[in-house]
């Protein structure tokens, strides 16, 4: 019995096979529509995240399975003080697989150590969110047909943005990947993540200038620059516009650039970009559902 708590638990081969399954689901949805008949997914959302929860639920329904669960701490037993371990043991009696989101880091790991069914981490605080990374990888694969040799720009909050760290970790394992890390000095990629890039034998450059970086990029992964991350309002106001992607900046980009964003966005991508054929962030959300379907099949051992 296997869970998925951290993207690093998946080998390159396993990720490739998940992508292959997802691509087959996209081409032949009817083939998969009863694969999980009679199976139940429990969505345990100790903090609300409608987007992620709906994606998991849609994934299970499209596999012919059923869904039960709760969202927000107030409606669950945890408000009465039940531990994550006990909740996991109890849910194991009712469901076949768990998707858990929790505000505390490590909670899904605790659940997986106590459950008798697979647990998928659907986000634990700012720590891990492996199915987001799976969605990112499928998007790159569908848009570029490969991972090897791509120049990947990551822009915005690269310090606290764990989706960024997790994506870097996953891409580090492919050949010839180059990273362009675009952020203000205050929000640079932490040194341990940069060490991992170097250890993997990959290259990176750091820059503060999005426009300057744009022409070289195959992928541009945007993230939100949050006001709370700055010590003072002045710095925030001075910097926030430099990291907003708009049609004017996009004139510097490649014709086949792929623009990604984990969503929700605030204002870091202008809505005017949405109609640009290079805007792939809504498809990215859809890809999340396909990868969750592939993952559920893998963890339940269904071919």
């Amino acid at each position: 019995m296997r869970s998925l708590i951290d993207i690093k638990e998946l080998s390159v081969e396993e990720i490739d096979s998940l992508i292959e399954t997802a691509l087959d689901i996209i081409d032949n949805p009817q083939k998969y529509s009863e694969k999980c008949k009679g199976k139940k997914l429990a969505t345990l959302f100790f903090e609300p995240s409608t987007r992620t929860r709906l994606s998991f639920e849609a994934a299970m329904y499209e596999l012919g399975g059923n869904v039960l669960g709760f969202s927000e701490a107030q409606s669950s037993s945890s408000a009465k003080g039940e531990s994550v371990a006990d909740t996991a043991k109890m849910i194991s009696c009712y469901a076949d697989i768990i998707a858990m989101r929790h505000p505390k880091e490590g909670a899904p790991l605790v659940a997986s150590m106590n459950a008798t069914i697979p647990v998928v981490n659907a986000g634990d605080g700012g720590h891990n969110h492996p199915t987001q990374t799976l969605a990112d990888l499928l998007t790159i694969k569908r848009k570029k047909g490969k991972f090897d040799g791509l120049t990947v720009g990551l822009c915005g909050d690269l310090k606290f943005g764990r989706t960024v760290h997790s994506l870097i970790n996953a891409l580090n394992r492919y050949n010839g990947i180059k990273f362009v890390l675009i952020s203000p000095d205050e929000l640079k990629v932490p040194s341990y993540v940069k060490n991992e890039i170097t250890k993997a034998g990959k290259e990176y450059v750091e820059t503060k200038d999005l426009v300057e970086a744009l022409p070289s990029l195959d992928i541009l992964y945007m993230t939100r620059v949050q006001k709370e991350r700055f010590f003072n309002e002045e710095d925030y106001l001075r910097l926030k516009d430099s990291y907003i992607l708009d049609p004017a900046k996009l004139t510097y980009a490649k014709k086949d650039l792929s623009i990604m964003h984990p969503l929700p966005r605030v204002n870091e991508i202008s809505v005017k970009v949405d109609s640009d054929p290079r805007a792939h962030y809504f498809e990215q959300a859809l890809n999340g559902k396909y990868m969750r379907m592939a993952l559920i099949l893998m963890l339940l051992g269904i071919k």
């Binding site: 531990s83 994550v84 371990a85 929790h102 505000p103 505390k104 880091e105 490590g106 909670a107 790991l109 605790v110 634990d124 605080g125 700012g126 720590h127």
Partner: peptide
């Protein structure tokens, strides 16, 4: 020592 860690609110772990 991480206040966001699950061990900070579930002391029996």
């Amino acid at each position: 020592k991480n206040p966001r860690c699950i061990t900070s609110c579930e002391q029996e772990l």
